[in-house]
Design a protein around this nucleic acid. Structure first.
Length: 321
DNA sequence: TGCCAGGCGGGGT
DNA sequence: ACCCCGCATGGC
């Protein structure tokens, strides 16, 4: 890769550090900066220091202005969240989180990676799911040379996974391997531009993504949230359903309706924020924290959405070849 | 050591 | 529109 140029985010009141580290993989989180792969082609990556300086690398620097726009979009710098705050300040679940993390945005990935991320969360714990993802990157990822000085991992593309699909077994993903294969084939076959899906009606997006076998409403909605910045349809799993039911004192069967009435076009983002606010703790611990109104991230040594660095210390990841 | 978990699809009613 | 089961794996 070539070093294209350096710049500075016009970041206004964005919390650059937390935005770049939350749900990032540990390979790309450093002491003073993080790496962010930009969606789409050509392969481009940004090193973003926590004070907002960035350094752009790409296979092809000729369209570097486009990449800066991609970066701005991926970081959600211009996403106007004022309505979210009108809805959320004072909320028993997210009120104090929103107050404390005002500058946080959700960094986008590409659709392929968002769908894989959702698949890895299916019927498993936070820790196990994110362990799968780290292992997929270690098993399939290539080392890229940034400017002759630094080398970093990059996530695999769908074709690279398809080429050696049997290796997925070593990532420990179990029966999810089939779904990952289906997703890779879908992405290769459809050649959908993320921007094309982005404009569709949310129900259409959900319908399109759930045609992939193994992708249901949860994974489709998570992907819309993580890749398209479309938050109208919330990913609600058993964990969030029980938490929301407890906090708002509504029956589990109507949690989704209640959630969408409350958060409206921010529903998906609010779902993700709850996982951050509760450090993605196991359900019983999360419920206890909710009862104690202890709903702010507590950064410990354990892996959590705001402490993804900890995954690099896990033997099951660190010791992979 | 066995459970069994931040889903899903298929097969029932 | 529901309910129920099996599913691979690795944490607890």
């Amino acid at each position: 890769m070539k070093h294209c140029h350096d710049g500075e985010l016009n970041k206004k009141d964005i919390d650059v550090k937390n935005t770049s580290i939350v749900y990032n993989l540990c390979f790309w989180i450093g002491e003073r900066s993080s790496y962010i792969y930009l969606p789409g082609e050509p392969l481009s990556v940004v090193e973003l220091t926590y004070d907002g300086q960035y350094r752009l690398y790409s296979e092809d620097c000729s369209r570097e202005d486009e990449y800066v726009l991609k970066l701005i979009k991926a970081l959600g710098v211009n996403e106007d969240q004022s309505d979210l705050y009108v809805r959320g300040l004072g909320d028993p679940l997210l009120g104090s989180f929103l107050n404390t993390y005002r500058g946080l945005r959700l960094r986008s990935t590409d659709l392929w990676w968002a769908l894989i991320t959702g698949t890895c969360q299916q019927n498993t714990s936070f820790k196990q799911g994110w362990t799968f993802l780290h292992r997929i990157v270690k098993l399939y990822g290539k080392i890229v040379d940034l400017d002759g000085k630094r080398r970093i991992l990059r996530p695999p593309k769908p074709r690279e996974v398809l080429k050696d699909i049997d290796k997925l077994i070593h990532a420990g993903v179990g029966y999810r391997a089939k779904t990952i294969k289906n997703i890779a084939e879908f992405i290769v076959r459809e050649e959908i531009e993320d921007s094309e899906l982005e404009r569709k009606d949310p129900r259409d997006i959900e319908r399109t993504l759930t045609t992939i076998k193994g992708v249901g409403p949860y994974t489709a909605r998570l992907a819309m949230t993580l890749a398209l910045r479309r938050y109208e349809l919330p990913p609600i799993d058993r964990w969030l359903r029980k938490i929301a039911s407890a906090v708002y004192e509504v029956d589990e069967s109507i949690v989704e309706d209640y959630w969408v009435k409350k958060w409206n076009k921010w529903s998906g983002l609010a779902s993700i924020y709850v996982t951050i606010a509760l450090d993605a703790e196991y359900l019983q611990k999360a419920l206890e924290r909710v009862r104690n109104r202890d709903i702010l991230p507590r950064i410990s040594k354990k892996p959590s959405p705001l402490n993804m660095q900890a995954f690099c210390l896990e033997p099951s990841i660190a010791l992979l070849p």
